[in-house]
Amino acid sequence: MRQELMSLPKGLAEEVARNLVMVANLLDEDPEQAYAYSRIALRLASRVAAVREAAGFASYATAKYSEALAEFRAARRMTGSVELWPVMADCERGMGRPERALAMAGEPEVNKLDKAGQVEMRLVAAGARKDMGQAEAAVVTLQSPELASSSVQPWTARLRYAYADALLEVGRESEAREWFAKALEADQGGQTDASDRLAELDGVEFTDALEDSDADEASEASEASEVSEAPESAEKAVEESAEESAEEAEESGDVAEAPKADGDKS
């Protein structure tokens, strides 16, 4: 990427680089903000392949699949590389065209991908099968030497998780549980929610201890408030009762005369 930016004037290259760094830093945490930075970089250097690729991933992360596909195609034309082929196919899925994604999975470009790219293409193809209501075919699509391998690679957890999910969709629950467990075993970076899916299958419910503590404190505060208000309420009730008694006595003519002061002859 640095070498590509060297084709730009120094000041411009530095500004574009800063925006690309922000795209990379924010892509997972704040994709909308990452997208905004990518548009700045794109406006400054649209003829740089790395910029088009970064803009594509930012659009992809914000579900702007049509924009993402256009940027990925532009980057591919500039570089001639096929490494973006799987994500381009997934954009087709995102645009509601799973049949196109499936067709891309059978193109010669797939054979030029490295192992990681081929696994990614298999995941996209299985997803397209599910989109088309072909759940059993999705299971078969994911069955591969990479899935059967006991070695753990960067893609292993996601591949096992996708297979478990496909098995669950066709009603093979016990096998699905086994593969969710295998996915969890390989998931060192927390890429999946395999642990939650396992717990769900086992009927385990988690309670948030912090929420329970907050609820207990709120309950205690409410009780304390009720207790503090009780004396005031009782006093008010006594006053109201006394006033009512006085009014009743006045109406019946039983109000006693006030005692006369000493020396009052009248």
Rank of each mutant, 00 (worst) to 15 (best):
A176S: 11
L113F: 08
K112S: 11
Q143R: 07
R158N: 09
L44N: 01
A74D: 14
L84R: 01
A215Q: 07
S59N: 14
T79C: 03
R197L: 13
D196Q: 12
P259V: 07
E99A: 04
D28T: 15
E53N: 06
A138I: 07
N25G: 01
F206G: 11
L198D: 08
V110C: 07
E205P: 06
L44Y: 01
A36P: 00
S151M: 13
S195M: 09
D28N: 15
L8G: 06
A116I: 01
E211A: 07
Q33R: 10
E99L: 07
N25L: 05
A138F: 03
Q33A: 13
P86D: 01
D214Y: 11
V110H: 09
E109P: 02
A126F: 03
L198N: 12
L5Q: 04
E120N: 06
E257L: 11
E107F: 09
F206K: 15
V110F: 08
A50F: 11
R76G: 03
A75C: 12
A68S: 14
G190W: 00
V227R: 08
S149T: 09
V152E: 15
V48D: 00
Q33T: 14
V48Y: 00
R52C: 09
A125N: 06
A54W: 00
A181E: 12
E257C: 12
A126N: 09
Y35R: 02
E220G: 07
A49P: 05
A103E: 12
S225L: 10
Y163L: 15
Q153F: 15
S266W: 12
E4S: 11
A126D: 10
R172I: 07
A34V: 15
S46C: 15
A218Y: 08
A166R: 06
L84C: 02
L27M: 06
R129H: 09
D262R: 10
A256D: 11
K130N: 09
V82K: 04
R93N: 03
L8P: 07
A128V: 10
A148P: 05
S195G: 14
A258F: 15
K260R: 12
E200W: 03
A89V: 14
S81D: 12
V238F: 01
E250G: 04
A126M: 10
Y60K: 06
A164K: 09
A234S: 15
F57P: 00
V139P: 03
V51A: 04
A215H: 05
A164D: 08
P231C: 13
P31R: 03
S219M: 13
D165K: 08
Q118H: 08
E217Q: 05
L167M: 14
D131S: 11
A36N: 05
V119E: 02
N19C: 00
E223G: 15
A209W: 11
F57Q: 01
Y65L: 02
A215D: 05
Q118R: 05
